[in-house]
Amino acid sequence: MSAFEALTNALAAVLCVVGAFFFFVGTVGILRLPDFYSRTHAATKCDTVGAGSVLLGLAVLEGFTPAALKLIALAALVLVSSPTAGHALARAVYRGGMAPWTRPGHRSGGEPK
């Protein structure tokens, strides 16, 4: 195995592990966070950073091939579409009148309209 190959393999492994980590954190967030907005936030992290870096890692592993180009295009698509979906969800719910969660005892930021 050449040095270059070893380097790209290591880079791909690091990217995939980072992606898996963000998936894990996002999943824990979906299960543990208190209200809709923060859960949406966690789910969006899953898609954007998690799937994005796993796809980039696979592209690095693939090398300079058409498949790698497709993987990068997929990562770009996820990078654009996932935050938009999160934004649309949160906005629709906020317009629908759900107040964000605040810690019990603190004054809430705004009453639901």
Partner: peptide, 19 residues
């Protein structure tokens, strides 16, 4: 319309449509 789609969503749809 109770809640028109925001500028962000419109822009992204226009951006991704051709792709």
């Amino acid at each position: 319309e109770p809640s028109p789609p925001s500028v962000v969503v419109r822009f992204v749809v226009r951006l991704l449509g051709p792709f």
